[in-house]
């Protein structure tokens, strides 16, 4: 449910292909995330532009994904509609590093660059 590409700078970009991260797909999401990030140690940027809906199971899967990075940030792009709402309601938008879109994420220098800005 996600396509993974690596930029020349070694940034892993995960593009979600699913429209819903919910109770029916959360386990699949966690498995795919682990597979995509297991042999990777650089920045992880996730593009959620195609995701129209996320529920509490989906949000829990996002938190599990962040934890699996062992202290590295999980950078999120293009949060819209219900996805944006669940992140704001739980204030998870302050826990994850959120960018307007992938272009903006790649233009900054990652968590350190964003903190300095």
């Amino acid at each position: 449910m996600m396509q993974s590409t690596e930029t020349p700078d070694g940034v892993l970009v995960l593009t979600l292909k699913a429209q819903r991260i919910d109770a029916a797909s959360a386990v699949h999401f966690k498995d795919d995330f682990r597979k995509a990030t297991t042999a990777q140690s650089g920045r992880v940027v996730m593009d959620l532009a195609s995701v129209t809906f996320m529920d509490s199971s989906g949000l829990g899967a996002m938190v599990a994904a962040l934890k699996s990075l062992d202290g590295r940030q999980l950078e999120l792009c293009s949060l819209t509609g219900a996805v944006d709402k669940v992140f704001r309601l739980t204030r998870m938008d302050k826990v994850f590093l959120v960018h307007a879109d992938v272009e903006q994420a790649l233009a900054c220098n990652g968590p350190k660059g964003a903190d300095a800005a």
Binding site: S56, G60, A61, V63, K67, L89, T90, V95
Partner: peptide, 24 residues
């Protein structure tokens, strides 16, 4: 929903459901 813990390892992975229902 309590104020979120500072450490990523302590973040909750569940328990959001009733919070959403009540909030919305």
């Amino acid at each position: 929903l309590e104020s979120l813990p500072v450490g990523v390892e302590d973040l909750p992975e569940g328990g959001f459901g009733w919070f959403f229902i009540r909030s919305l």
